[in-house]
Nucleic acid binder design. Structure first.
Lengths: 162, 162
DNA sequence: CTACTTGCAAATCATTTGCAGATGA
DNA sequence: TCATCTGCAAATGATTTGCAAGTAG
C-alpha cells in the first residue's frame, strides 16, 4: 500500500494499524476484520474526511456486507479515542483528520470551496500558553480556525469583478 | 431593563434591538412581536447560550403560545445574519454569544464544567494575518478554542488526588 | 389588503442504539 | 466456549420545513 505522507509529516515509529491493534488489546477489544479494513482505509491517504466520504471509499465493502454504517461510526470513535485521528466540527458535520504521525497544526478554511489549508505556528502556542497561565488554566489542546478566501477563490472573485 | 455589560464591553452606539429593527427594515422584513421578544431576551444578559437555554428563558411566552420553537430558531438565524450574535459549535450543538457591542475574543473551554472564559489577544491576530499572507489567503475572521481545565476544576482534581 | 410570519405537525439528517445472530481469543 | 462485535432496523435529537391561519405595514 502506498502511503501519502505530505511535506511536514513525521515518520511514525510504528504504522497506525499497529498502534490501533495495541490500543484495542489494551482495552480488551478485538481485532476484527472490519476494524482492520477501516483503519487501513482511513490511513491510506492523508486528507480531511467525514463519515460519508469514508463510506464512499468503502462502498464496495459496504455493498458486500463486509462493513456497515454503524460500524464505521463506532470505529471512528475508537480511532479518535486512540488518538489516531482528530475530530472537528465543520458546519454541523464531523470532519476527521490524521493525528497520529502528523504534527499539530491549525487551519485556514476557505468559505467558498471549503478547502482546508494546514499550517503550524509555535508562536500561537506560546501566546496560548501565556494567556492560559494568566487564567490559571491548564491547556490540553487548542483549535484555531481561520475563515476566509483561498488564493484560487480570491482570483476567481477578482476576475468576475473586473 | 438592566443590561449586564461586563468588563471589556464596548458601549454600542445604539441598542441591539434598534440595530435589529434597522436590519429587518433593510431586508423588507417585519418587526413582529416575537422577534421583539426574542432579541430582548437574547440581549438581557451577556452569556453564552444555546437554543434550549434561550427557550427555557422564554418558557412562559412559549407556554402562552406567544413564541414557538421554530420561530426561536428562525430568529437566531436572523440575529446571526444581522451580525448581532455569533454562532459556534460546541460538541455537536450550536452555542451563541453576543457579537454586537462586544470586542472580538477567543475562548478557553473547560472540558469538565464546560465553562467558557473569554480573552482577547492582538498578538494572535498578528500571527494569523502573517500566516494568511504567506498563503495568499484573505482573512474574514477566526475562531480559537483552547480546551483544558479551568482553575476551579483543576483545584477539585488536585484535592481528589491528594 | 396581501405579503410576510407564525405555530403546528411532520420531515430531515447525521449519528446512535437495541438486539439477535456472528465471530475472535 | 462465550464475551465482544456486527448488521439491521429503528430510535434519537437538534434543527428545518410545508402549510394554513394570523398579522404587520
Amino acid at each position: 500500500m502506498t502511503r501519502d505522507y505530505s511535506l511536514r509529516a513525521i515518520e511514525p515509529p510504528q504504522p497506525p494499524e499497529d498502534r490501533f491493534v495495541q490500543f484495542l488489546k489494551s482495552r480488551g477489544k478485538r481485532i476484527t476484520q472490519q476494524r482492520r479494513l477501516i483503519v487501513e482505509q482511513v490511513f491510506s491517504h492523508h486528507d480531511h474526511f467525514d463519515a460519508d466520504e469514508l463510506m464512499d471509499h468503502l462502498q464496495e465493502l459496504i455493498a458486500e456486507r463486509k462493513v456497515s454504517r454503524p460500524t464505521v461510526y463506532r470505529t471512528l470513535s475508537e480511532l479518535t479515542e486512540a488518538g489516531l485521528i482528530r475530530k472537528m466540527t465543520l458546519g454541523g458535520r464531523s470532519v476527521y483528520e490524521h493525528e497520529y504521525g502528523y504534527p499539530s497544526h491549525d487551519h485556514l478554511h476557505c468559505e467558498v470551496c471549503n478547502k482546508l489549508i494546514e499550517f503550524h505556528s509555535d508562536e500561537i502556542e506560546r501566546v496560548r500558553d501565556s494567556v492560559a497561565r494568566q487564567h490559571d488554566f491548564e491547556v490540553f489542546s487548542h483549535r484555531l480556525f481561520v475563515s476566509g478566501l483561498c488564493r484560487d477563490c480570491r482570483k476567481r472573485k477578482e476576475q468576475r469583478s473586473d
